[in-house]
Amino acid sequence: MANELRLVEAIRQALREEMARDESVVVYGEDVGVSGGVFRATQELQEEFPEQVYDAPLAEAAILGMGVGLGATGFTPVPEIQFASFAYQGFHQLVQHASRMRSRTRGTLGVPMTVRMPYGGGIRALELHSESFEAGFAHVPGLKTVVPSNPSDAKGLLTAAIRDPDPVMFLESTSRYRASRESVPEGEHTVPLGEAEVVREGADVTVVAWGAMLHEAMSAVEDAEVDAEVIDLRTVSPMDSATILESVRKTGRCVVVHEAPRTGGLGAEIIARINDDALYHLEAPVERVTGYDVPFPMFAREEAYRPDEERIRRGIERALSA
């Protein structure tokens, strides 16, 4: 049985079902209780689970640090950071403690914490509310980093993340929260972490994207009438290199799309892996369509910064013409 849900509703359903299944699951964060969160992802959950949903003070270091303690003592914390950029205030808790607890204690303790956070542009938010920092989280050994692009994956990936024995950064595209309704399985539904999905098969070029950019890429491919294979990475760390490499060996060309700045972005890592293991299959250099190496701009310039259908289409054309 399935329901037609928006992404934000699928997130709420996953949280509700996991708290009902396991009373060790604790949801907390700034305004997540009484108000139901900035985007209402946790709306009414405190009423249903008064012993498992809590409001937290405006203190990201404390929110993440408490998750380390909760996770190491038998709880399954699911903190929400109100916007991804606010996590910088508690980054030391992730790097110094959460990510290395298992190795530090030789497997004695783990931190089964899932950190939910809205990220990315497209909603004309204020400064420090629209950044895409997935490459920074992915660079930390011991952290898994997940970015769903649709409601069904959002529920399945969040469920898998909550059940994972180690910390997971769960990034939710703000522009996709209410963008569409899609069929989402009711009840038990998981999507394995670390597995990409080929959402469109093709023979001429491989397009790799995740989160909100997956939808821009799909629109660009359809408008350009290109026989493109499109891959939704879904989990950016650990990255499913095998699916990307298999596709590139077939098509010989590749375009990587991400909203984050170009320098040091995950596009560079994907290119490096292709060069390592599929270089002789390439017919042209891998193209990157990304954000620019500037701070995410304010309202009037937001859409000029984010990759759109036209920029992606031009990237595909460059890959095909080389």
Rank of each mutant, 00 (worst) to 15 (best):
G267H: 05
V205H: 13
L233V: 10
E225M: 01
E201F: 00
A217K: 03
E186K: 07
L245C: 07
A228L: 09
A278H: 05
A203S: 13
I274P: 13
I274M: 11
N275G: 04
R262M: 08
D223N: 11
G252S: 10
E269P: 12
A228H: 02
D223T: 12
L214E: 02
Y177Q: 04
D223H: 00
L233N: 03
V207A: 06
I271D: 13
V199Q: 00
A260I: 13
R234G: 09
W210K: 04
T243W: 12
V207R: 14
V257E: 01
E225G: 00
E222H: 06
A196M: 05
I244W: 01
I270W: 10
P238N: 11
V208S: 10
V198Q: 03
L279F: 11
S183L: 02
A203K: 13
S219M: 03
S247P: 03
A217P: 01
V248C: 12
E197A: 15
P238L: 03
R253N: 10
S183R: 15
P185G: 08
A220M: 06
T251Q: 00
E195Y: 02
L214V: 06
G187L: 12
A268H: 09
L266W: 03
P261L: 15
A217L: 07
D227I: 01
C254E: 01
I270H: 07
D276N: 15
E195V: 10
E269Y: 04
L214P: 00
D227N: 09
E216F: 01
S237V: 05
E201K: 11
I244R: 15
L266H: 15
V199E: 01
R234L: 01
T206E: 02
I231T: 04
D276I: 07
I274R: 15
S219N: 05
G202R: 12
D223K: 04
E225R: 01
G264T: 07
P261A: 07
A224L: 14
M239K: 00
Y177F: 08
R253V: 10
A212T: 04
V199W: 01
C254D: 02
V236F: 10
L193F: 08
H258K: 04
T243Q: 08
M239A: 04
G187Y: 13
V255Q: 10
T243S: 13
G211N: 02
A179F: 02
G187S: 11
V191R: 13
